[in-house]
Computed example of a mutant assay.
Amino acid sequence: MTDKQESSSSTLDLLRSLSSLLLSLSSAASLLVIAISILPLSQWAKHQNECVESQKGNVGVAYEVSYCNGRVPGP
């Protein structure tokens, strides 16, 4: 190989390495954002489970879930 070909090859290797690094960082950042955005949902689900458990045995699961959501079904 000539010096020009080796230089071109090392430049391509550097670009591939940098693009892999940027892709990895953006993937990690995306996963972090998703994990943070799911936290309120997990807290809500925990509250729902606690509420339904406290209502166990009243009428039925559908009624308990409606009650915990603030919508008691009509007759």
Score class of each variant (00 low, 15 high):
Leu41Met: 07
Ala45Gln: 13
Leu18Met: 14
Val72Ile: 14
Ala45Ile: 07
Met1Ile: 15
Leu18Phe: 04
Leu12Phe: 07
Ala35Glu: 05
Ser54Asp: 00
Gly60Ile: 00
Ser37Phe: 03
Ala28Trp: 08
Leu23Cys: 03
Gln48Ile: 01
Ile36Lys: 00
Pro75Ile: 09
Arg16Asn: 07
Ser66Cys: 08
Cys68Gln: 00
Gly60Lys: 00
Leu14Ser: 08
Gly74Ala: 04
Ser10Asp: 13
Thr11Ile: 10
Glu64Asn: 01
Lys56Phe: 01
Ile34Met: 14
Asn58Ile: 11
Arg71Val: 09
Ser10His: 00
Cys68Asn: 00
Leu32Asn: 10
Ser27Ile: 04
Ile34Gly: 02
Trp44Val: 04
Gly70Val: 06
Ser30Glu: 14
Tyr67Gly: 01
Val59Glu: 05
Trp44Met: 04
Leu22Val: 09
Gly74Lys: 02
Tyr63His: 05
Ala28Arg: 13
Ser42Ile: 08
Glu6Ser: 15
Lys56Ala: 05
Leu18Ala: 10
Gln48His: 12
Ile34Pro: 08
Arg71Cys: 11
Tyr63Met: 03
Asn49Lys: 08
Leu25Val: 15
Lys46Pro: 01
Ser54Lys: 02
Cys68Thr: 02
Asn58Ala: 07
Gln55Phe: 07
Gly74Asp: 03
Gly60Ala: 08
Gly70Cys: 07
Val59Gln: 04
Ser24His: 15
Asn58Arg: 09
Ser9Leu: 12
Arg71Thr: 12
Thr2Met: 03
Gln5Ile: 14
Ser19Lys: 13
Val52Cys: 06
Val33Leu: 14
Cys68His: 01
Tyr63Asn: 06
Met1Tyr: 12
Gln5Asp: 15
Ser10Tyr: 12
Gly74Asn: 00
Ser42Pro: 02
Trp44Gln: 13
Ser7Lys: 12
Ser54Glu: 01
Leu22Ala: 04
Ala35Arg: 12
Ala45Lys: 03
Ser42Met: 14
Val52Arg: 00
Asp13Asn: 11
Val65Ile: 13
Ser19Gln: 10
Lys4Phe: 14
Asp3Thr: 11
Gly60Glu: 11
Pro40Arg: 07
Trp44Ser: 09
Ser54Ala: 09
Ile36Thr: 06
Gly60Pro: 02
Tyr63Arg: 00
Ser27Lys: 13
Pro75Ser: 00
Leu12Pro: 02
Ala62Pro: 05
Leu39Gln: 08
Val72Ser: 03
Ser19Tyr: 06
Leu31Phe: 15
Ile38His: 02
Leu21Phe: 04
Leu25Thr: 13
Leu21Ser: 13
Cys51Met: 04
His47Asp: 15
Lys46Val: 11
Leu15Arg: 14
Gln55Ser: 08
Ser8Glu: 15
Thr2Leu: 03
Leu23Arg: 10
Thr11Gly: 04
Val61Ile: 09
Leu14Asp: 10
Leu14Met: 15
Leu12Ala: 10
Ala28Ser: 10
Pro73Ile: 07
Leu15Cys: 07
Cys51Thr: 01
Leu23Thr: 10
Glu50Cys: 11
Cys68Glu: 02
Ala62His: 05
Glu64Ala: 10
Ser26Cys: 14
Leu21Ala: 08
Leu22Lys: 09
Ser26Met: 13
Lys46Tyr: 06
Gln55Arg: 09
Ala29Asp: 10
Ile34Val: 09
Val72Ala: 10
Ser19Asn: 09
Lys46Ser: 05
Leu41Lys: 00
Leu18Asp: 12
Ser26Phe: 05
Trp44Tyr: 09
Ser7Tyr: 11
Met1Gly: 14
Thr2Gln: 01
Ser20Val: 13
Ser66Trp: 02
Leu32Ile: 11
Ser66Gly: 13
